[in-house]
Design a protein around this nucleic acid. Structure first.
Lengths: 218, 218
DNA sequence: GTGCACGTTGGACTTTGGTACAAGGGGACC
DNA sequence: GGTCCCCTTGTACCAAAGTCCAACGTGCAC
């Protein structure tokens, strides 16, 4: 049986996706989440999810940050990115970060069905009218993606807090571990990201964001 | 006599702006620059420039970073921002950072003339069809702008390098000063930006950027 | 079973970062 | 001339960051 998790804060769109899934898979087990935390919890609790349909602009998913985090923590799960934004550069970056496909929110039911079918068949899928454009773009994030993908889940969490300007001690407290351990993770993170200090690590991490830096402001 | 500096990497557009200036000012002294470094040099060498027409996407001007830098170093110069991007949120942010006006690159000659006339008359100017929209936006960057505007020119330079992940020692070398001095600047910067460490300062500074963080990548 | 990746911690250490307090020179402004 | 801001440097000190070494338990895969 195919088990799919739909992660989108828009109930109506979740329904549309469910219809598409019913149309192309018999006896699909469909789960839903409306923010990134819930998504992560479900992925962790149920270890047999085959496919994740992930909205890039869902609460908690900060541009590509959410995607990259999921890819670090659950590398075995295929992820299809969903977004209202159809910018080819964004699609390119999502694919670079390991997305198995990209579905615009404006898609009709047939397109959704086609896309889901393709991905469940282990083929990547992007909108046909953008296929050429996206393919022509040189890999925007491939090196960044490759570096970040090397991080372990815990290292990713540490990096996220570093990119928030937190101290090692604060990170240790929040994760319930010793500051030494945080430092050990930091050394690993620097090596994997090929940077020399936490400021550069934070900068690299924040490249995952998509929108104007100000709108995240506070 | 009115002295104006046009900072835009597009020669054709510089010409259009010159025409507009000729049409509304008699005996205008028009200078040109095609990147931010040259702009800064001209502003520093000639201290009697009344108006700067600044392209947001000129080489070196990294989103609002260039504008903020100019405002720190030459607070007396009126700056009108020019951009192909007409996003009201960007216009709002530019005004928050002290721009005296905003001119879309798509403007015709009459509009350019009108805008320049208004600004030389010490009135702020934005495209009439966007005026309401921009005014309705709550101040996006006003607090950030207020904090950054307090920085002295040297502090701004230091912060810029911090946001690049450089060490205090490296910053000191590049500025030809002692590391102690850099530290003194850092303490000032933290106080003015209301942050507690360099990572947070770097984050705050990078909010000035406008585009997807990845495209600055390397 | 044997490896391997992951997360964890330990000790000992060096390097950076950051604060507090004080002060002098130079330029701008009144 | 006096005042204020900017930039600079100094001393002294403490906190945070980061490195190099090594180790142990767990769970997973071959």
């Amino acid at each position: 049986m195919t088990r799919v998790l739909i992660a989108d804060d828009h109930p109506l769109f979740r329904n549309a996706l469910k219809l598409a899934l019913d149309a192309c898979v018999d006896s699909a087990d469909v789960l839903e989440a409306e923010d990134l935390d819930q998504t992560r919890r479900l992925l962790a609790d149920l270890d047999d999810i085959d496919l994740l349909l992930l909205d890039l602009h869902m609460p908690g998913s900060n541009g590509l940050t959410g995607l990259a985090g999921i890819r670090c923590e659950f590398p075995a799960v295929a992820v299809v990115v969903i977004s209202a934004n159809e910018d080819p550069a964004v699609i390119r970056r999502a694919l670079d970060h390991g997305a198995a496909g990209f579905i615009p929110k404006s898609s009709g039911l047939e397109v959704l069905t086609e896309a889901v079918t393709a991905v469940l068949d282990c083929r990547t899928w992007v909108p046909p009218h953008l296929h050429q454009t996206v393919a022509a773009l040189e890999a925007g994030d491939r090196d960044l993606a490759a570096r970040i993908a090397r991080l372990t889940p815990q290292q990713f969490r540490v990096l996220q807090m570093v990119a928030d300007g937190r101290l090692n001690k604060q990170i240790a407290d929040r994760l319930g571990i010793q500051e030494r351990t945080v430092k050990a993770h930091m050394s690993e993170i620097f090596a994997k990201l090929e940077v020399r200090n936490r400021t550069q690590a934070g900068i690299a991490f924040r490249r995952l964001e998509l929108v104007d830096p100000s709108s995240i402001s506070r």
